[in-house]
Every structure is written in C-alpha cells, then in structure tokens.
Design a protein around this nucleic acid. Structure first.
Ligand SMILES: [Mn+2]
Ligand SMILES: [Mn+2]
Ligand SMILES: [Zn+2]
Ligand SMILES: [Zn+2]
Lengths: 142, 142
DNA sequence: GCAGATAATGATATAAATTATCAATATGGC
DNA sequence: GCCATATTGATAATTTATATCATTATCTGC
C-alpha cells in the first residue's frame, strides 16, 4: 500500500468517514491510474477488481473526495467530468485548445500569491490548479 | 457595442468563421452576463433576446469559442459545464471545496513560468487559469 | 468479540446534459 | 444578386448525473 493511498485513506477517516471496502478499491484504482478518469471510466476499472461495487458508489465517493479537496473535476474533451488528484497540493497543465493534448509540468510560483489571498479573504487554501491554454506544437502548424 | 464584444467578434471572423446573427446574440449575452453560465443557462438567456436561436447552436458556438481559446469550461457545483471568459488572457479563482463559493481575484505571477514552458514545449500560450481550492471563511467554522 | 446506531451501499428509476443527423437556411465572396 | 457552402435548428438518441429506498456493512462502546 503506497504512502499516497495511506494518506488519502487517513484523510477520509480523519474527517469522520468510514473506510469501506468500496472506497478502498476506488481510491486504489484512482491512485494506480494517476487520475484523469471520468466517473464511468473509473467505475469500469473498479469493477474489474471488485465487481460488486455499484456505479452510484463511485459517483458518491468522487463527490466526497472533491468535498475533502482530494480530487478535482476538470474538462478533458468529452462532456463527462474527469478527476485529477489534488492531494499533493497542486496540479499543473498545459492544454491545447484545438486537440485537447494535456502536458503536465511541475514548477509554479503560486505560493506567494496564495499566501496573500489566504489572508485577504480568510480562505484556507488546500491546493491549487494552474493551467495554460493555447496551441500545442502540432496544432500550431495546421 | 463594447470593445470586448468587438474583439471577440473579430477573433471569429479572423479565423474564417461567419459572424451569424445567432453567434452575435450568443456572444453579446455571454459578455453581458460575464460568463460563468452553463450551456442551457445561456441558451435560455439568448432566447429572451432571440427566440429563434436553437439550443444546438449555443452548444456548437460554445465549442467553437473554446477551440479558439475565447472561453473555457469549468465545473461549478452542478454536473453541467460552466463557461468562463478567457479573452483577457487569464482568469483567477478561489473556490470553496465545501460550498462552491467562487471568489475572483486579479493578481498572479504566472507570466514567467508560462514563458519558460512556452519555450520548453514549443507551446503557444493564449491564456491561463489559476484556481486555489480550500475552505472559505464561512465553511471553516462549520 | 458482540450489539446497536447509523453511515454507506447498490439496484432501480428519473432527470439532466451532451451529441448525432439532416434537410432547410443564411452568410460572405464574387 | 448569385452561388458554394458554412451554419442552423428541429428531432432523436446517447451519455452523464441525480434521486429513492430497502438492505448491508462499519464503527463505537461495551
Ligand atoms: Mn494532470
Ligand atoms: Mn470567474
Ligand atoms: Zn494540439
Ligand atoms: Zn464555503
């Protein structure tokens, strides 16, 4: 069991939620896949490992994880929400407006800005998402 | 007709798309409302001004505006996509993970990072979105 | 370890949001 | 104004998301 999985599980129990087998499998699948899945995509993968887990439980678990700030829904081409992991505190993308290509990157200087905002609005920051949008190498040449 | 509306219209024609009356009304409504609308919300408002504009046209226009980088779909509580205006080059949010409150802010230091990424990946940046997620003043006290 | 209170589940039904089709129409270039 | 064709909108189909509720599993306290 990975550290990340342990940490996510702990966040659940720390907030008074039960660590059910369904939730365990869902978390494990989510971590293994590295996120970027839709609810139904995830439900399908989860059912490979645990066929008894219902689709509703996946939807509800995703909602719960969102509320706890562990994941975040974003658009990724299709009409369905895709969920990215937020437990590391940040997530960064370059996204092509034409073909939908997603490039991940790490560096970012949002901490200072966050600090200031946190005070101004008395807002407790748990994570951030930074996305640059534009045209990828390939799509610029079309 | 606002400068913003003119600029958006120009982007359409500059990219070889027709400036139809439907698109004009859609853009105008979008700008007037300041974005943050779902496709169906927008369709309803559009039909107040122009009853003949069909829902499909709104969906398709929103897709087109996304592809041109003028707007961007994000999640805002409900299952439907909400569209934010991106033509100013950036958009910044503080979002409460519990109640969904959205606070807008202006300052940000993403330009330098963007510059570096742009070169590294040969990616033409058109805009960026920065979101901080956490708990608002009110929800921290629950 | 067991019982009880209750959070959580999952089968089912319903609603909401998105996408596909295609004949009719409006648009911009000439 | 004419024409080629991009765009539209009515309709239908599909995909996503939400609501219900009886049943089950989890945790707490003993
Ligand atoms: Mn990612
Ligand atoms: Mn906004
Ligand atoms: Zn691309
Ligand atoms: Zn809140």
């Amino acid at each position: 069991m990975s550290d990340q999985l342990l940490s996510l599980s702990k966040t659940l129990t720390d907030n008074g939620h039960r660590l059910t087998t369904a939730r365990q499998v869902i978390l494990e699948t989510l971590v293994t896949c590295g996120g970027h899945l839709s609810a139904d995509d995830l439900a399908a993968k989860v059912r490979d490992a645990a066929p008894r887990v219902g689709r509703m439980t996946v939807y509800r678990t995703l909602d719960l994880l969102c509320e706890l700030g562990m994941i975040r829904p974003i658009y990724q081409g299709t009409g369905a929400a895709h969920y990215i992991l937020m437990d590391e505190g940040s997530h960064h993308h370059l996204i092509c407006n034409r073909c939908g290509l997603v490039i991940e990157f790490d560096e970012c200087m949002s901490s200072e800005v966050g600090q200031a905002l946190s005070q101004r609005f008395n807002f407790k920051i748990q994570s951030h998402l930074l996305e640059f949008h534009g045209l990828c190498d390939h799509c610029q040449k079309l």
